[in-house]
């Protein structure tokens, strides 16, 4: 029965709109079907819950228009699909809803991009161990750029202080609080490595995390159910969880956002470094690269033979961490 309904919806949408598709492929078909079923669920549960008074403010006469709109938008947001399966129109709709919601609650505009991967781009990162001095400017820039929770002091980057003569993480310290660089020590940063074979992506039961065409491993924060299986699967401590509702002071919110990047998260979902997707897809360097005062961080397009990252890979003796796990990180270390 639902298939029949879907067919009719498809036909009308194709007939009325300026639809560019002349033939549906399997992906579109399954996607449309999913949306159809979900809408049915939305209507069904909507009907059920309305009686229970859960959408009280949406129907109430006394509630203000803003409150009504707020509840309506939240309701629609709850039933949206996985970002990967959204059409361009659906992406636009959810972005509009999210921007409107922020405006309603904070009185300010945010700009959420849905920019797709740029063609012939595969991002890679290199870290110069000789240059890092442990100043932590990268960490601070990252927190500001990516709207991370200030309460729990969430950080994507960890800087490990290692004793000279050892390359041993177990003896290193990633929670130091003293003047840097400390004598007899060197520094090394870790973060999400955007693996070519990311174990975190395989384990996600709902497909809320995936690798984009430009190699960035992203999370759909609104699709994540918070089971934290990805955190257990990551060998590099690349993922963080919002144990409480993340708090970012209003004046510090970075309003230039990407759907898969630094937009504000909710409680109970995982997040991680996205190579600052909101910057990198615009052709800029990630915040950590820009903030590093010593030039220890190099970022670029691996497919561009003239890029700095390619120069490093071609001319320096590079290595990666835990290569035995076969994850193929796109994050290399080297020394001068």
């Amino acid at each position: 029965m639902s298939q029949k309904e879907n067919k009719t919806t498809n036909q009308t949408s194709c007939g009325s709109g300026n639809c560019t598709c002349d033939k549906q492929d399997g992906f579109d078909q399954s996607m449309n079907k999913k949306t159809g079923r979900r809408q049915m669920l939305q209507k069904l549960t909507g009907g059920l819950l309305a009686g229970a008074g859960l959408v009280n403010s949406a129907c109430s006469v006394t509630a203000t228009d803003n409150k009504k709109e707020n509840a309506q938008l939240k309701w629609e947001e709850f039933f949206k699909g996985n970002y990967r399966l959204m059409t361009a129109d659906e992406k636009k709709e959810t972005v509009n809803r999210l921007q409107r919601l922020y405006e309603l609650n904070h009185g300010k505009r945010i700009d959420i991009s849905t920019k797709s991967p740029v063609k012939d781009v595969l991002y890679g990162y290199a870290f110069n161990i000789s240059k890092c001095r442990g100043y932590m400017d990268c960490v601070n820039a990252c927190v500001k750029e990516n709207n991370q929770d200030r309460d729990s002091q969430m950080q994507y980057i960890r800087i490990h202080e290692m004793k000279n003569g050892h390359f041993n993480f177990e003896e290193s310290d990633d929670d130091f609080y003293h003047e840097v660089p400390a004598a007899g020590h060197f520094y090394l940063g870790t973060q999400c490595y955007h693996c070519e074979n990311p174990p975190c992506v395989d384990v996600c039961p709902v497909g809320a995390t995936w690798k984009e065409k430009d190699g960035i491993v992203v999370i759909d924060y609104d699709w994540c159910i918070g089971c934290r299986y990805c955190m257990a699967a990551c060998p590099y401590d690349g993922r963080r969880f919002n144990w409480s509702t993340p708090e970012v002071p209003e004046e510090e919110v970075n309003k230039k956002q990407h759907y898969l990047g630094n937009r504000l998260r909710k409680k109970g979902v995982t997040e991680k470094c996205t190579f600052c997707i909101q910057r990198s897809r615009e052709g800029k360097n990630p915040a950590c690269v820009e903030a590093c005062p010593t030039g220890a961080r190099i970022f670029g397009n691996l497919l561009d033979p003239d890029s700095e990252i390619r120069w490093v890979l071609d001319n320096k003796k590079v290595f990666r961490l835990k290569e035995d796990l076969g994850t193929e990180p796109k994050f290399w270390y080297f020394m001068d």
Partner: peptide
Amino acid sequence: DLGGPARAWHLIPGIGLFN
């Protein structure tokens, strides 16, 4: 144990996305 139990319907094949 779920961070977002309200979104557990994402697990239901057909309306969710079952990996």
